[in-house]
Measured scan of single mutants.
Amino acid sequence: MQRVNMIMAESPGLITICLLGYLLSAECTVFLDHENANKILNRPKRYNSGKLEEFVQGNLERECMEEKCSFEEAREVFENTERTTEFWKQYVDGDQCESNPCLNGGSCKDDINSYECWCPFGFEGKNCELDVTCNIKNGRCEQFCKNSADNKVVCSCTEGYRLAENQKSCEPAVPFPCGRVSVSQTSKLTRAETVFPDVDYVNSTEAETILDNITQSTQSFNDFTRVVGGEDAKPGQFPWQVVLNGKVDAFCGGSIVNEKWIVTAAHCVETGVKITVVAGEHNIEETEHTEQKRNVIRIIPHHNYNAAINKYNHDIALLELDEPLVLNSYVTPICIADKEYTNIFLKFGSGYVSGWGRVFHKGRSALVLQYLRVPLVDRATCLRSTKFTIYNNMFCAGFHEGGRDSCQGDSGGPHVTEVEGTSFLTGIISWGEECAMKGKYGIYTKVSRYVNWIKEKTKLT
Rank of each mutant, 00 (worst) to 15 (best):
D111H: 11
L23N: 02
K51S: 08
I284H: 07
D249S: 12
N138Q: 06
L325F: 13
T194S: 13
R180P: 02
G409N: 13
L20C: 10
Q219A: 15
P235S: 07
S99Y: 08
L41M: 06
M394K: 04
N138I: 05
F31L: 14
K459M: 14
E67P: 01
G106H: 03
V353D: 01
D131K: 09
G349L: 04
E171R: 07
H34S: 08
E288G: 07
M8A: 13
D33I: 10
T287K: 07
V174A: 08
I334E: 00
F251P: 06
R449N: 15
T16L: 12
Q90G: 12
S423H: 15
R46N: 02
D315K: 00
V248H: 13
R140P: 08
I256Y: 00
N203I: 08
C128A: 03
F348P: 01
Q185D: 12
Q2H: 09
G409L: 08
C69S: 00
Q237C: 04
A317H: 00
W88F: 09
E61I: 04
P333S: 05
H282Q: 09
T194A: 13
N166D: 08
S11G: 12
K152M: 13
Y115K: 04
F31H: 07
E171C: 05
D378N: 10
I309W: 07
I136F: 14
Y305L: 02
C28Y: 02
L23E: 02
C119Y: 02
Q219T: 13
Y47G: 13
Q143T: 03
Y441G: 02
I454T: 01
H415Y: 08
T84C: 03
V242R: 00
G160D: 10
K260W: 07
G125S: 04
H415S: 01
K455G: 04
R180N: 02
F388H: 15
V248Q: 13
L211Y: 08
E208F: 08
P12M: 14
L20F: 14
I344V: 09
I275P: 05
N48I: 01
H314T: 02
E323H: 10
I275E: 01
T287N: 13
T290A: 06
G160I: 01
T332H: 06
N452M: 06
Q237A: 07
P197W: 07
T445A: 05
P197K: 11
V257F: 02
E165Q: 12
Y391V: 06
A366R: 09
Y330W: 14
S148R: 07
C134Y: 03
T218A: 07
Y330N: 05
A317V: 04
K387T: 10
V353Q: 04
L24A: 14
H34L: 08
S148H: 09
K109F: 08
P197C: 05
I256C: 01
I334C: 02
G403S: 15
F221E: 12
I210F: 09
F399S: 11
